[in-house]
């Protein structure tokens, strides 16, 4: 019994990360995923803040689910979410002003993020506090991973390097990790070779990267479905062969 309960909790945590990934599978929260993914750091910061808001609002909505009347469900959820967004916004402005200015309007737009509202509407109002916490955490981590993948591709392809310490200033001055360009001593000097395409930093590049990622995932899904179909057919054929082969000897046995 205990074991079963634990696995159910675990299930609500894990499904958000991969199987029901809010971005890649449910296609929710596309706006920040395209807008703040110019650099890996900004995307990571957005993911963390998003997770904080999602977990807090999920927990509070689920804790108050018996108090909130059914008719006023959505407005109450929106107010709860907006409160946490305001808190997170003010904390970010005070502690990480660079991150705050990079994310800009998209921090406020967390209020209308479909995932936050969707999770509290679909999950938190029906489930207990612990489950809602794990669900929020799982979805938040899944979303963070998804936007970090997009940002990684866009930053490496677009600038040819990864830059750390620009948004998170506590890491100390900007550190560069050169991948597609030759190292340059100063940021101004032209590197010896440069394979990056600045197109990937533009809005068009964001759509392209997300489109291709989704296509790759769809291709993998199609392959799996195809394989399952072929497997099922082979199994059926084997069974048919076995059942064809079986009755004859048994019939023969009876006749003898």
């Amino acid at each position: 019994m205990m074991e079963k309960k634990k696995s159910a909790h675990f299930q609500s945590f894990v499904s958000g990360i991969w199987k029901e990934n809010p971005l890649f599978v449910s296609l929710l929260g596309l706006c920040p995923a395209l807008a703040v993914t110019k650099s890996l750091e900004a995307a990571f910061g957005m993911g963390i803040l998003f997770t904080i808001v999602l977990v807090c609002s999920n927990v509070l909505v689920s804790a108050l689910r018996k108090v909130i009347p059914d008719e006023a469900k959505t407005p109450c959820e929106i107010v709860i979410i907006a409160t946490f967004v305001t808190l997170v916004k003010m904390l970010t402005e005070a502690m990480l002003p660079e991150l705050y200015s990079t994310l800009g309007v998209f921090l406020s737009l967390l209020v209308v993020n479909c995932i936050v509202l969707g999770r509290s509407e679909a999950f938190a109002v029906k489930n207990g506090v612990v489950d809602s916490l794990l669900d929020g955490l799982g979805n938040g981590i899944g979303y963070t991973i998804a936007i970090c993948i997009i940002a990684l591709l866009r930053e490496v392809l677009g600038t040819g390097m990864l830059t750390f310490g620009e948004t998170f200033t506590f890491l100390g001055g900007p550190h560069h990790l050169y991948i597609l360009t030759g190292p340059s001593a100063t940021p101004v000097a032209q590197p010896a070779w440069d394979l990056s395409l600045s197109f990937f930093q533009t809005p068009g590049g964001a759509f392209l990267v997300l489109g291709i990622i989704l296509a790759v995932l769809a291709a993998i899904r199609n392959c799996k479905a195809e394989k399952a179909k072929v497997d099922a057919r082979l199994k059926k054929a084997a069974e048919a062969a076995a059942s064809k082969g079986n009755p004859t000897p048994s019939q023969g046995g009876q006749s003898k």
Binding site: L27, T202, P203, G204, G205, F207, L208, L210, G211, I212, L214, A215, V216, A218, A219, N222
Partner: peptide, 23 residues
């Protein structure tokens, strides 16, 4: 459209081309 691109992926590619046009 290629099977993998059916639906949303090809729509995003279209959006990419539109974004380039607007740029």
């Amino acid at each position: 459209t290629p099977k993998a691109f059916k639906g949303i992926p090809i729509a995003l590619i279209v959006a990419c081309l539109m974004a380039m046009a607007f740029m």
